[in-house]
Design a protein around this nucleic acid. Structure first.
Lengths: 120, 120
DNA sequence: ACCTTCTGCAATCTTTGGTTGCACGTCACC
DNA sequence: GGTGACGTGCAACCAAAGATTGCAGAAGGT
């Protein structure tokens, strides 16, 4: 039923920039708005906003170090997000396969018995 | 590396309304803008726009039937989207697990040898 | 002490999801 | 066959989100 999942998490990972940021944070283990923006096609401020959003939904937590603000992934919450990703994917995949299978069955039946077609 | 995935597909399934629409289309096997809007919290026109977007990225194809316009999922493209979903999910999941494991290893080492801590 | 660098905040712009309103085509019913 | 109802598409308009520029302040390095 794909259910009512945390829409916040979805919108967080739905944005391409945020997805890439999560990717970078996951790879580097942490980073600042400035460091992240160096490898992204957007300005530092845009990255800072996204970090704020990610922080609001609990996907990252901030640790002020001197004048720098280091953001790191929240493993638990990130795992939740990944889980929901695969949940929806699996749900859709299952239904899609079922439908495909049904279609094949019908096709096969028509091949075997071309007489009894049901109209569209 | 999570790679460079079709950003269009991602943004298509990133929107909650579109995600629900895909869900409904998958369940019902097809539908019109009007029929879909009946079970969604948005107007028919909003649904029509989303259908237009989904059509542009090839996730649905339209079939005019009399005065109605019936939209149906494109199985192949939809399968691609689902695949990318699970690809990213799997990639993140793998790296997350690896990191978690490393963290546990470090923790265990510190438990066994509390003397040699590396400062934060 | 000075200059650099990194941060945060505010104003503005553009895109996008959403709404309302309207005009046209199609179906059904009289 | 005409008329009303249903369904579609188009256009204008709104609001929120992604992104930009500009600026002032705080922490570090020399």
């Amino acid at each position: 039923m794909t259910a009512e999942i945390d829409d916040d998490l979805w919108s967080a990972i739905g944005d391409p920039t945020r997805r890439r940021m999560l990717d970078m944070l996951l790879a580097a283990g942490g980073g600042t708005a400035t460091s992240l923006s160096h490898e992204l096609p957007v300005t530092r401020q845009a990255v800072a906003k996204h970090l704020g959003i990610l922080h609001r939904v609990g996907l990252v937590h901030a640790a002020p170090i001197g004048r720098e603000m280091c953001y790191r992934l929240d493993d638990a919450q990130f795992a939740r997000a990944v889980a929901q990703l695969s949940t929806v994917g699996a749900s859709w995949d299952a239904r899609l396969q079922r439908i495909t299978q049904i279609a094949e069955t019908i096709q096969r039946r028509q091949d075997a018995d071309p007489g009894r077609q049901n109209k569209t």
